[in-house]
């Protein structure tokens, strides 16, 4: 049976709004499956700018969004969840410091915590997290894998 190659991606993006005394920033996060199969859906716009990097890193050619979330940060201390059917990426913002967000990220497989990380997420500098492999269940060697990717980039 032909193996399937998959990649899970979580994306965070930051948008600046002109209103108000403090600029509001929107963070986008997403879970993406990477695969070498023919594309079913177009690559998400948030991933397009780092698509080349993802291809170099993981060796996959196509990227499919399976879950996303968009959060406008007002206090810088919000939390949100980007989820798919089986995976979820919980993002807990602990405030802005030196023009970057300190985030606690938790990658869940259903209710099971797979990975926990703390990062200082800078604008226009994505955080890419390689998650578990996902195989077709018929091959002892998994050729597909899931990874989560998180990044923040300013939107003008």
């Amino acid at each position: 049976m032909r193996p399937r190659l998959l990649l899970l991606i979580a994306i965070l993006s930051v948008a600046l709004s002109s209103g108000g005394s403090l600029p509001e920033q929107t963070v986008w996060s997403g879970l993406i499956i990477a695969t070498n199969s023919p594309p079913i859906e177009p690559t998400p716009a948030e991933v397009t700018q780092i698509e080349g990097t993802l291809r170099k890193l993981f060796g996959y050619s196509q990227f499919q969004l399976i879950g996303e979330a968009r959060k406008t940060l007002k206090t810088g201390e919000e939390d949100w969840l980007a989820s798919s059917k089986y995976f979820s990426l919980h993002v807990d913002s602990r405030g802005e410091k030196a023009d970057a967000y300190v985030l606690n990220l938790k990658l869940f497989q259903e209710q099971k915590l797979l990975l926990e990380t703390k990062a200082r997420l800078s604008k226009a500098s994505p955080l890419i997290i390689r998650g578990p492999q996902v195989g077709d269940g018929q091959r002892p060697a998994f050729r597909s894998e899931h990874s989560s990717i998180a990044y923040a980039t300013p939107k003008c």
Binding site: R4, L6, L8, I33, T35, I50, T53, L57, I66, S84, K85, Y86, F87, Q109, L114, L115, T117, A119, S125, P126, L127, I128, I129, R130, G131, P132, Q133, V134, G135, D136, G137, F142, S144, H146, Y151
Partner: peptide, 18 residues
């Protein structure tokens, strides 16, 4: 980009890509 590369996580069946 900054990469957090995790190896050795439990492999999952393909339906988890849903």
């Amino acid at each position: 980009v900054t990469v957090l590369w995790v190896d050795g996580l439990q492999s999952l069946p393909p339906e988890y890509a849903a």
